[in-house]
Computed example of a mutant assay.
Amino acid sequence: MSHTAHIPSHRKPRRSGSKMAFRAGVAGGVFSTLAVAGAAAPANAETVTETTLEMPTLGSLDADLASAVSASAEATQQEALDQSLAAQEDAALKKAAAQAKKAKAEADRKAEAEKAEKARAEAQERASRSESRTQLSAKSSSGSSDAVSGRSSGETTQVATGSAAAIVAFARAQIGDAYVMGGTGPNSWDCSGLVQAAYRQAGIDLPRISGDQSSRGTSVSLSNLQPGDILYWGSRSGSYHVAIYVGGGKYVGAQNPSTGVVERSLDWDTPSGAVRIL
Rank of each mutant, 00 (worst) to 15 (best):
residue 214 S to K: 05
residue 214 S to F: 00
residue 214 S to D: 01
residue 216 R to V: 09
residue 216 R to Q: 15
residue 216 R to P: 02
residue 216 R to Y: 01
residue 216 R to D: 00
residue 217 G to K: 05
residue 217 G to R: 02
residue 218 T to L: 01
residue 218 T to Q: 12
residue 218 T to R: 13
residue 218 T to Y: 05
residue 219 S to E: 15
residue 219 S to M: 12
residue 219 S to N: 12
residue 219 S to V: 14
residue 220 V to T: 09
residue 220 V to S: 06
residue 220 V to F: 05
residue 220 V to Y: 04
residue 220 V to A: 10
residue 220 V to M: 11
residue 221 S to K: 09
residue 221 S to N: 11
residue 221 S to V: 08
residue 221 S to I: 13
residue 221 S to D: 12
residue 222 L to A: 07
residue 222 L to C: 11
residue 222 L to G: 06
residue 222 L to R: 04
residue 223 S to A: 14
residue 223 S to G: 13
residue 223 S to L: 09
residue 223 S to V: 10
residue 223 S to F: 03
residue 223 S to C: 08
residue 224 N to T: 14
residue 224 N to R: 14
residue 224 N to V: 09
residue 224 N to L: 07
residue 225 L to I: 06
residue 225 L to E: 02
residue 225 L to R: 05
residue 226 Q to T: 10
residue 226 Q to G: 03
residue 226 Q to S: 14
residue 226 Q to Y: 06
residue 226 Q to V: 12
residue 226 Q to I: 05
residue 226 Q to W: 04
residue 226 Q to E: 13
residue 226 Q to H: 13
residue 227 P to G: 02
residue 227 P to T: 02
residue 227 P to C: 08
residue 228 G to F: 06
residue 228 G to M: 10
residue 228 G to Y: 06
residue 228 G to P: 04
residue 229 D to F: 06
residue 230 I to H: 00
residue 230 I to Y: 01
residue 231 L to V: 12
residue 231 L to W: 05
residue 231 L to E: 02
residue 231 L to S: 08
residue 231 L to N: 06
residue 231 L to M: 10
residue 232 Y to L: 10
residue 233 W to D: 05
residue 233 W to E: 03
residue 233 W to H: 11
residue 233 W to T: 09
residue 233 W to G: 06
residue 233 W to C: 10
residue 234 G to A: 09
residue 234 G to H: 09
residue 234 G to K: 12
residue 234 G to S: 08
residue 234 G to W: 06
residue 235 S to K: 13
residue 235 S to H: 05
residue 235 S to P: 10
residue 235 S to T: 15
residue 236 R to F: 02
residue 236 R to Q: 15
residue 236 R to Y: 01
residue 236 R to D: 00
residue 237 S to I: 09
residue 237 S to L: 12
residue 238 G to I: 04
residue 238 G to M: 13
residue 238 G to D: 14
residue 238 G to N: 15
residue 238 G to W: 12
residue 238 G to A: 15
residue 238 G to T: 15
residue 239 S to F: 01
residue 239 S to L: 02
residue 239 S to M: 08
residue 239 S to P: 10
residue 239 S to G: 05
residue 240 Y to H: 15
residue 240 Y to L: 11
residue 240 Y to D: 13
residue 240 Y to T: 13
residue 241 H to W: 02
residue 242 V to E: 00
residue 242 V to W: 00
residue 242 V to C: 03
residue 242 V to L: 08
residue 242 V to H: 01
residue 243 A to S: 15
residue 244 I to D: 01
residue 244 I to H: 06
residue 244 I to S: 06
residue 244 I to P: 02
residue 244 I to T: 11
residue 244 I to R: 00
residue 245 Y to W: 05
residue 245 Y to G: 01
residue 245 Y to C: 01
residue 245 Y to M: 03
residue 245 Y to I: 04
residue 245 Y to Q: 03
residue 246 V to Y: 02
residue 246 V to H: 08
residue 246 V to T: 10
residue 247 G to R: 01
residue 248 G to W: 03
residue 248 G to S: 09
residue 249 G to E: 00
residue 249 G to R: 07
residue 249 G to W: 01
residue 249 G to H: 00
residue 249 G to T: 02
residue 250 K to E: 10
residue 250 K to L: 08
residue 250 K to R: 15
residue 251 Y to P: 00
residue 251 Y to N: 11
residue 252 V to I: 14
residue 252 V to N: 03
residue 252 V to H: 00
residue 252 V to C: 10
residue 253 G to C: 12
residue 253 G to A: 14
residue 253 G to E: 12
residue 253 G to L: 08
residue 253 G to Q: 14
residue 253 G to M: 13
residue 253 G to H: 15
residue 253 G to S: 14
residue 255 Q to L: 13
residue 255 Q to I: 14
residue 255 Q to S: 15
